[in-house]
Design a protein around this nucleic acid. Structure first.
Lengths: 333, 333
DNA sequence: GTGAAAGCGCTAACAT
DNA sequence: ATGTTAGCGCTTTCAC
């Protein structure tokens, strides 16, 4: 096996507890001793075993991060930011992909929860009921899902959707469609609500088409319905759906933005790099990842002190509309 | 605290060791007892504490996955496949991002190695020397880097690069450029070698431009040099660079593929969804992720049995060329 | 087939 | 400031 605390203790002529303290409570040990122990540890290549430490402290210094689909470009920036923030705080993070499957999501939470101090649930597809039950086992922070009594980080996509509809209304469009996302998605519900309200305010006709698979295939598959509906503008669940839709429209001889204006959500890499560049609702994914980690860590240290119910916060992050090339003034109103 | 093995033992009227056996060696316990214990465990919501188990067995059932940049679309499919495969084998995976920083990469390996049974190093930027030293601490599998004595999974990008140059040669191009990647990248070296050789065989002139940042910014920044060089075809380090280059070329009034043919590497989502659709070298990222996990797991169980040097394999995965819309016959030869 | 006991690497009272 | 002791949750000889 590897070098343990005992090896360091023997080598430096002190008791194991002194070595332990050198690492977990340095101020409690004589500066001279500390230096010596540190030197020996360095020389031996000693690294504290975090699992063993977790056994006594009850803190694993690990976090779980559960997402619906790592390959969906919405998530990588969030994952990247979350693990960077966690590392900053001396935490490591397990990343797990649920493949958009609620059952797998639950299963993952349950197996992971014994190994982590808390879990970050991003855009969960799980029912509120199940989440409620699970939260007894491990502290949660949920991203993009509203849940009473739980700490949540919300990206205010409603605000972006409102701006999007107004943008399109200002361009003279009178009939638009909303390509909604997966049934369990909070984001999709928010978008629908905001879009419906705003469309009404502007006396626009809005058709909701969906649910759609949150990928380019979903958008491609919806192209027929969009074409048939005769709308001149479409707000899509995300950039991928928008990009797929644009492709499908093109296959039907419909150009974007000439014949139809299309708006996505996420401001993802593919949208930025595509032609026409996608008009899209920006989502503060990196900020959400960092904030979620900080809130989770706060919840964790908080729940250690008090026996009462965990404190809960709702952080609401702003979204915005980036107008690029996939929207333009309606040609035939 | 949560429910432990002892709670289950008390509740089901057996000794803790019997409960332990029920989970880790079921065949050693009476079927009837087993059923009862399992029922009680289920009822109590008992989940074995893997960290505690790791303390005695020496197996954490965790893996580390280290990548240069989660947000680079090359990695997500690999990460997704790797963690799915790991889960299948009852392993969890820590994902860490090095931000293309060799020092951080080393740091991460060192802190992670005590918590995992092995680490997957993807496209490492670390020097061979350091990797050699680190491998004593923890089993490795390296993706896209050649290292004697180490188990590696290689994507044969040379093969794809050869096909790409031949494709371009067949289209009548006589002068092409290679936009190389980061200095430490094995992939970049392989591409360069293959492209140089193949270009020579076809009496083409090849200029190597780089190193370039492996992102769209790298490609954008290289556009000036490419335009100045007067080449009619460019093979880029990856799709992002290619997409950035296309944008930069466009800003200079150069169209793709009309004026310049551009080829990427990765067959990533942005490349598939962009206009023109990117001609690119496909990389078997998902397969590599799965295979790397399996090889790592094999190394781990292998190294448990024998005290000798760990076995090493080199898996070479095929790449291919997908011809799409960003390449065409040269206009002014 | 099951129980008893020791111990994995570490921390946390409690002594001194 | 440092040593002693007990124990975290689990596995694993070793008896029976």
């Amino acid at each position: 096996m590897a070098v343990t605390i005992r090896d360091v203790a023997r080598e430096s002529g002190v008791h194991v507890s002194t070595v332990s303290r050198t690492f977990s409570a340095p101020h409690l040990v004589n500066a001279e001793t500390r230096t010596r122990v540190l030197a020996v540890a360095e020389g031996l290549g000693y690294r504290p075993n975090r699992a063993a430490r977790a056994l006594t402290t009850g803190r694993t210094h690990n976090l779980g991060l559960i997402v619906a689909d790592i390959a969906n470009p919405f998530f990588p920036p969030l994952i990247k930011a979350a693990q960077a923030q966690a590392r900053e705080r001396d935490y490591h993070v397990f990343v797990a992909d649920t493949d958009e499957d609620p059952l797998l999501e639950q299963e993952l939470i349950e197996t992971l929860c014994k190994q982590v101090d808390g879990v970050l649930l991003c855009s969960p597809r799980l029912s509120n009921r199940v989440i409620e039950r699970l939260r007894a086992q491990v502290p949660f922070v949920v991203v993009n899902r509203r849940l009473k009594g739980l700490t949540t980080v919300l990206m205010d996509v409603g605000q972006g959707a409102r701006a999007a509809v107004e943008h399109v209304a200002g361009l003279g469009h009178r009939r638009m469609a909303l390509l909604s996302g997966p049934a369990g998605s909070w984001t999709s519900g928010e978008m629908r609500q905001a879009a419906t309200d705003t469309a009404a305010e502007h006396h626009m006709e809005l058709s909701v088409l969906g649910p759609n698979e949150p990928t380019e295939h979903g958008g491609l598959a919806a192209a027929g319905a969009v074409a048939a509906s005769g709308v001149t503008a479409v707000l899509c669940y995300n950039d991928l759906v928008a990009l797929g839709l644009i492709e499908g429209l093109r296959q039907r001889g419909l150009g974007v933005p000439d014949d139809v204006s299309v708006i996505g959500v996420d401001d993802s890499l593919p949208g930025r790099l595509s032609r026409p560049k996608l008009t899209t609702i920006t989502m503060p994914t990196a900020a959400a990842g960092r904030m979620a980690v900080d809130l989770l860590l706060a919840t964790i240290s908080g729940s250690a002190g008090t026996a009462g119910p965990a404190p809960h916060t709702t952080a609401r992050l702003e979204t915005g509309l980036v107008i690029r090339e996939s929207t333009q003034r309606v040609s035939s109103p």
